[in-house]
């Protein structure tokens, strides 16, 4: 996995697995924390990480545990959103600002992955059973949500306070 520090954002790319260098990741995080000075708040961008396996995910979780800092996931890809929803992956010091989600266009049978911001396109709710979002693609055709909102946004509805605090 490659790690690039862009001011207070750490951008990862490649694969997060047993081959990922823990030292390289730690160095990137340390640099971004230093850049954030007293604010101690770092953005984590995994949008270019194609896949992750359980070894990589556990290693990542353990790395974060050792830092005394706030982390914000930005541009989180689907595999990472699934982790947010699987267990207590998000801790007291981590939150999420934006996530990617799948959309389907029935008019031309295509799929698109769009970035959704929490608090904007995704309102902070206790329940997403009735949630819907109709967007248009570049050709002006309707895009349908291609995920189950109550499951995909479970990490928000199970702890809306975390995100309300963030939005405030």
């Amino acid at each position: 996995m490659e790690v690039v520090v862009n001011n207070t954002t750490v951008e990862f790319s490649g694969l997060l697995n047993e081959e990922s260098s823990v030292d390289l990741i730690k160095q990137g995080l340390e640099q971004a924390i230093k850049n954030s000075a007293a604010k101690k708040e770092v953005n984590l961008d995994f949008s270019k990480v194609k896949r992750a396996n359980s070894c990589g995910i556990l290693a990542w979780y353990k790395i974060l545990e050792n830092f005394d800092c706030s982390f914000i996931y930005v541009n989180a890809p689907r595999w990472l959103v699934e982790q947010f929803n699987i267990s207590d992956f998000l801790s007291e010091k981590t939150t999420v600002s934006s996530i990617y989600a799948n959309f389907y266009c029935p008019s031309n049978d295509t799929h698109e992955v769009l970035l959704l911001n929490i608090g904007k396109e995704i309102p902070i709710l206790d329940n997403y059973d009735e949630f819907n979002l109709v967007l248009k693609n570049k050709e002006g055709f309707d895009l349908e949500i291609d995920f189950e909102p109550s499951e995909y946004f479970y990490f928000i509805s199970s702890n809306p306070k975390r995100f309300k605090k963030e939005a405030a």
Partner: peptide, 21 residues
């Protein structure tokens, strides 16, 4: 087991959930 603390797990449990998805 969803409530189990992730940091205490071996990869197995986490992995099999990922598999079933």
């Amino acid at each position: 087991q969803k409530t189990e603390h992730i940091g205490k797990r071996n990869s197995g449990g986490l992995g099999i959930k990922l598999i079933f998805e």
